[in-house]
């Protein structure tokens, strides 16, 4: 007998079930999407990110967002993701910003060397100050992870009220991506003496630019 069969058999024996026995429906999903207007969501997102020691700024237009990113970058080097929205904003054309990378090794090296990673995000959650990033040809994982600073530029229309709305819009994330990551503030640890240290592995600085 394989380990799989042995374990399944032990499970069934313990539960008093037989193979293929029907299963009642699980308890109904508990999702309650709050109705929150756009301005309240934006205000909440900005406040939550700031409370997490991230930086959150609102831009009226894509061009203004691009200026904000330019300021954040200063003289630092950056890698930008292939998100069309970044190009729309003109962020990919800023000096010192590399973009358009499609090769894994090249991306790794670029991210390991860059000071800043610039991405968009598929969604943001207003009540927790969270970015939701789905891995795709447009968004690689390491850009928001390896550089010490992460800058995300998102249109205000992508801000959701919270987890419940996310899982309403995206009931099966696995159908669209192999990796969905929720990012809530800068990387942190408090493993020693509960002293908070930011940026222990992931970015210690995070800036979110909300456009619109």
């Amino acid at each position: 007998m394989t380990s799989r069969e042995t374990i399944l058999q032990r499970v069934r024996a313990g539960l008093g079930r037989s193979a293929g026995q029907t299963v009642p429906d699980p308890p109904a999903v508990r999702i309650q999407v709050a109705e929150v207007d756009k301005e309240t969501k934006i205000a909440s997102l900005l406040a939550r990110v700031e409370a997490l020691a991230g930086r959150a700024v609102r831009a009226a237009t894509p061009a203004e967002a691009c200026e904000i990113v330019r300021e954040v970058l200063g003289k630092r080097s950056a890698v930008a993701s292939n998100a069309p929205y970044l190009e729309e904003c003109g962020v990919t054309g800023l000096p010192g910003v590399r973009c358009g990378i499609t090769d894994r090794e090249e991306l790794r090296k670029a991210c390991a060397a860059a000071d800043v990673g610039i991405t968009s995000a598929d969604y943001a959650l207003a009540d927790t100050g969270t970015l939701v990033m789905l891995s795709s040809p447009h968004e690689a994982r390491l850009i928001s992870l390896l550089p010490p600073t992460h800058v995300a530029v998102i249109p205000a229309s992508r801000i959701l009220s919270g987890l419940d709305e996310l899982f309403t819009i995206l009931p099966e994330p696995a159908a669209v991506t192999s990796s969905m990551v929720l990012i809530t503030g800068p990387s942190r640890t408090a493993d020693i003496e509960q002293i908070l240290v930011r940026g222990v592995h992931g970015p210690g600085e995070i800036t979110i630019v909300v456009v619109g």
Binding site: N82, L107, S135, S178, P186, G202
Partner: peptide, 18 residues
């Protein structure tokens, strides 16, 4: 929420860079 919540379903897919 913790800082990072990863929902991982399988190896990278067609076109995913990393």
């Amino acid at each position: 929420l913790s800082v990072y919540t990863s929902f991982l379903s399988g190896p990278r897919r067609e076109g995913e860079i990393d």
